[in-house]
């Protein structure tokens, strides 16, 4: 337990700092729990200063978002292999070309850029205009993205899925749903944006006893440092609940895998247990599928 708590302290820390310290409203969806939206009242830096500070925090691979960067080593192959299967000797540098992928809650674009490098046509949406600006600027830095930059939009999934129903080959919501209050609305909006036969990928912490204990512990300690929403863990969703919501929305859940994070070495691994974190892959059924 001790080891684990250290692990998750770290993760929570970066998440809580990101949503509080500099008002990273990346998770501020229309459906977001109001309690988390604590506003800072004084801004004593110029816009530019702040912008570059956030950029640095997001994109320094050893900075505050260290865990999100190394998370890519696990979730990018997960998404790739969920969408395409290529024989080892026939692999290409852009296995995801011709795939339209929506990254919901893209933040500074850490995941969006990584999938775009595999050739996917990526749209990233986030409710924070600041982060969308940051993400749009940052993707110009990578020469490998010259012909295939993600396009970023400041919007919510509820709005976006109204304009783009049945549109994407895959919709990804990585570490987002745990910040969302109205999960039913959120899940149905995710599903709406996917083409029939397309895929959904969700990664999120589980709501389990060990995770709860950890959540309290984190909150208590962090409360002394930064104001924080102590009841974050109540928002977590279990694999069963998520499966239920998805199946209610005409999806078939294909796989659920547990994940672990080891902060000292900054490494993510797959785990046989979903106690702490999990990744879920589902397919949106076509009409024929659902009639059977």
């Amino acid at each position: 337990m001790k080891n684990h708590s250290l692990t998750y302290l770290k993760m929570f820390l970066s998440r809580n700092l990101s949503s509080q310290g500099y008002k990273c409203p990346s998770r501020a969806f229309a459906t977001l729990n109001n309690k988390t939206a604590i506003k800072e009242t004084t801004i004593d830096q110029s816009h530019v200063d702040k912008h570059s500070k956030i950029a640095k925090e997001w994109w320094d691979p050893n900075g505050k978002m260290i865990a999100l960067h190394s998370y890519n080593l696990l979730r990018v192959p997960y998404i790739r292999d969920g969408l395409v299967i290529e024989e080892p000797f026939k692999r290409t540098l852009t296995p995801l070309s011709n795939k339209k992928i929506l990254d919901v809650g893209c933040g500074g674009g850490i995941l969006s850029e990584a999938i775009a490098r595999l050739g996917a046509n990526v749209t990233g949406i986030d409710a924070s205009s600041e982060l969308i600006e940051l993400a749009s600027d940052h993707c110009k830095l990578d020469p490998k993205l010259v012909d295939n930059r993600p396009s970023y939009h400041c919007t919510t999934i509820e709005e976006h899925s109204q304009s783009f129903p049945d549109h994407y080959d895959a919709v990804v919501a990585s570490e987002v749903i745990e910040h969302v209050a109205n999960k039913e609305l959120f899940v149905s909006s995710l599903v709406r944006a996917v083409k029939p036969g397309g895929k959904l990928f969700v990664t999120t912490p589980n709501r389990t006893r060990p995770m709860q204990i950890l959540g309290i512990c984190v909150a208590e300690h962090i409360l002394r440092v930064v104001p924080v929403n102590t009841h974050d863990y109540e928002m977590f969703i279990t694999p069963n609940e998520l499966t239920f919501l998805l199946e209610k929305n005409n999806c078939h859940v294909q796989a659920i895998h547990g994940m672990m994070y080891y902060p000292v070495v900054n490494r993510w691994t797959w785990s046989s247990s979903t106690t702490f974190m999990y990744a879920l892959q589902a397919e949106k059924l076509t009409d024929e599928d659902s009639n059977v």
Partner: peptide, 13 residues
């Protein structure tokens, strides 16, 4: 306190 610990880990790295 926890923050320090985590940060020092980071620094170490």
């Amino acid at each position: 306190m926890v923050l320090c610990r985590v940060n020092s880990l980071n620094n170490l790295l």
